[in-house]
Design a protein around this nucleic acid. Structure first.
Lengths: 206, 206
DNA sequence: TGTACATCAGTGAACGCGCGTTCACTGATGTAC
DNA sequence: TGTACATCAGTGAACGCGCGTTCACTGATGTAC
């Protein structure tokens, strides 16, 4: 609970977003209600309308912040792997899963809340930026493949995104019944490893 | 609308399930309400309780039927590819996507509705059966890999399941903004192809 | 430094709504004789 | 074949609930003079 400064909250806008994220994380994308987020921020539901147009707008902003962090994290990981295209790519993949693990509320708001990425221009920009980081890493790595055997970079990155997302959804949630003897991190790392070997990007025995 | 036989409906139970599936497909996993499903089946909400314990129970049964069909479809595809382990495996993968495409309501009820696969014993069995088909195909294909380079079959099948699920969620929905120049079918087929090449199961140039 | 005043972030009551669920009931169906 | 009756699938009214949203308001804040 944030320390209140008397009548005015101080930073209600962000407090509402944080409350929303926590509710989404605990109760799932459906479990979020505007009223409850307001209550958790110590405020009347009506106060929300000073800062957001409504319920959807609140989720959209939470998702936007998620995409912004997501993009930054992947960008940072990408940079940390440079100048090796392979290292940069693998770091980016790991960053994907790390983000989903550390910020499940954001991840759910971004991918499972049902809000369109085109709902607001800001959200669309943040989402496109994040996508671009992964695509850049994929494009760069693609250049190490002989052109005649090279898949389109957008297909490459779509494969990796799909694999990462699938691992998160099926194995990194506490989704009951869908357990696996392997950790999501292991699954993603080995999966990407085999995939890259299939592209001839890493040696067969490494 | 099903032809009614006077006062009694005839097959209200299945009509409710079908209505639920259609609503889930159109409105998303959140959009489903018991009342609306009842209305669509031409019946009072209270009538639902003659056939189901409540809202959750209805979704669980819809998901169970989905898993049953899902398992059957993959089993059929698997059989159709025999005796080639590779052909059987690839057919099973294609069947995964085909199911998600043709029965989106079932797919959503199964994987996105938030109901636990352990909610009822019948649901758990149906889900385990479906998983088993994919694992069998993976195990069989694994045997063509030299034991020292062979990944555990459960890891293998987890990779494929994750990739398939990711492709469905990100590219096979009309999820706005997440478009790709490639069809989901292409994405999954090429993705699995590269992956299998990485395992040495198909030739590098095929 | 002190006062008047504009701004605006919050209140609290109210609304209409659709939800899931319950209950006593009714009337169609099918079976025993 | 006809009748009495048990079964049970549906009705319809009612419930309490929490939701998102609106509105006129109030009182804290900060600025101009």
């Amino acid at each position: 609970m944030v320390k209140k400064r008397g009548y005015h909250h101080g930073n209600l806008r962000q407090a509402l977003i944080d409350a929303a994220l926590q509710l989404i994380e605990v109760r799932g994308p459906t479990g979020f209600t505007l009223s409850e987020a307001a209550k958790q921020a110590g405020v009347t539901p009506a106060a929300v309308y000073r800062h957001f147009e409504g319920r959807e707008d609140l989720i959209a902003e939470a998702a936007r912040q998620g995409f912004a962090m997501f993009g930054d994290l992947m960008q940072y990981a990408y940079d940390s792997g440079q100048p090796s295209a392979l290292a940069a790519f693998e770091a980016t993949g790991r960053a994907y899963l790390a983000f989903a693990r550390r910020y499940p509320g954001h991840y759910i708001a971004m991918f499972e809340s049902g809000i369109s990425v085109n709902r607001t221009p800001e959200l669309a920009v943040a989402s496109a930026n994040a996508r671009h980081v992964l695509e850049k890493a994929a494009t760069e790595l693609c250049e190490h493949i002989p052109p005649d055997k090279r898949p389109p970079a957008s297909m490459f990155s779509a494969h990796i995104w799909a694999l990462s997302h699938g691992v998160v959804e099926l194995y990194a949630r506490n989704s009951p019944g869908t357990t696996s003897p392997f950790s999501p991190e292991d699954l993603l790392e080995t999966g990407i490893g085999i995939y890259l070997r299939g592209l001839g990007l890493i040696a067969r025995d490494s």
